[in-house]
Design a protein around this nucleic acid. Structure first.
Length: 340
DNA sequence: AAACCTTCCAACCGCTCTCGA
DNA sequence: TTCGAGAGCGGTTGGAAGGTT
């Protein structure tokens, strides 16, 4: 099968256009319009196929073409549109007057794509790469390196991606919190794998994640609607999920990876309410031998003093533990049951 | 100065879509 | 409904230009 290329006919010229050819094409189109591209070469006296003429005209000779470097606004537009439309270059080009799909495609492939990859984001999904637990801290550190962000607009995009990563991390953290924990006696110092045998996160992974959260705690996002995300990425996600209900977390920066045989001492996790500098109540991150929620979870009333829309009642979760309502809201959400 | 490497982008290829006979 | 021509689109390539050793 296979259709023969339009330029297969013998004698038709291929390759770079000469100024004379350009002149012929421009003159003809200015006088007659392009009409049928197939017929154009013969009528204009060009030894090219119609397709080649069309490409030359639309990508290079058209009078309304804007040449030169992409502005920061154009760059941001491309990033935003690409996160929504994907590789629909012609659709993206329709939002950038004077730019061709080919030019945008080239700019994406040679600049923007590489930069996103460098910062640890998947250029197709605009999300942090999937192995969030092993890579997120590293990737966020990369994103924070100013020298990797040489355009203001890219920095804005990186910030947006970073906040999205924060939401993902929070989701994953919640998932961890909502995992049923095995009884203390059966899960002691031997649980040193990254995943325990029930498939839940290990302390190490959760702690890596919390370290990520600590570096993201400045992300000024409290609701999905505040993120400039593609509609598709929000499909099925209820924007009412109270991300802002999650307290800020601060992890001691001198935390060391625990020895492989388990954590000799659970690191201290300090909980801050939003906008407050002093910790509400330090508590220990639940080790594998500590069922969640630990009794040292700060009283919800203390958190609610500075976090919006918090109830102050507590209720009982499926763990049979007293759970602050801030977590209860999340437990009620079917989405979290699906994840868990 | 020369060789080699990397980046960039114009142009091509092949596929799909649209439309009219 | 089918088929073919033409147009449009996205992926890929090849060579020029610029940078590095």
């Amino acid at each position: 099968m296979g259709r023969s290329p339009c330029c297969d006919e013998s004698g038709l010229k291929k390759g770079p256009w000469t100024p004379e050819e350009d002149q012929k094409l421009v003159k003809y189109i200015q006088k007659h319009g392009h009409g049928s591209w197939r017929a154009l070469p013969k009528l204009s006296g060009l030894n090219r196929c119609g397709k080649s003429c069309r490409l030359r005209w639309t990508n290079y000779l058209r009078p309304d073409i804007k040449r030169g470097k992409f502005s920061q606004e154009e760059e941001q537009t491309i990033l935003n549109l690409h996160s929504v439309l994907g590789n629909k270059w012609s659709a993206i080009a329709s939002h950038l007057p004077g730019r061709t799909d080919n030019e945008i495609k080239n700019f994406w492939n040679t600049h923007l794509k590489k930069k996103l990859i460098q910062m640890g984001f998947d250029p197709m999904t605009h999300r942090p790469r999937t192995d969030i637990f092993s890579s997120l801290p590293h990737l966020i550190a990369l994103a924070n390196l100013k020298e990797l962000i040489d355009h203001h607009s890219l920095e804005e995009h990186a910030l947006r991606l970073k906040t999205e990563a924060a939401q993902m991390a929070k989701l994953q953290y919640l998932q961890y919190l909502l995992q049923p924990q095995p009884p203390a006696a059966s899960n002691t110092a031997t649980s040193s794998n990254n995943l325990n045998n029930t498939g839940t996160l290990s302390d190490i992974e959760a702690f890596n994640l919390l370290n990520s959260l600590a570096s993201l705690k400045d992300s000024p996002v409290s609701s999905l609607s505040q993120l400039d995300l593609p509609a598709s990425s929000l499909q099925g996600i209820n924007d009412s999920i109270p991300f802002s209900h999650l307290p800020d977390l601060q992890i001691p920066c001198n935390y060391q990876t625990p020895p492989t045989k388990g954590m000799a001492q659970a690191p201290e996790l300090t909980v801050f309410s939003q906008g407050e500098n002093s910790p509400i109540s330090p508590f220990h991150f639940p080790s594998s031998s500590t069922p969640f929620p630990p009794s040292a979870v700060p009283p919800v009333a203390q958190i609610s003093s500075t976090v919006n829309n918090l109830g102050d009642a507590s209720s009982t979760s499926s763990y049979g533990e007293e759970v602050p309502s801030v977590w209860h809201d999340l437990l009620e959400d079917p989405m979290f049951h699906d994840i868990a």
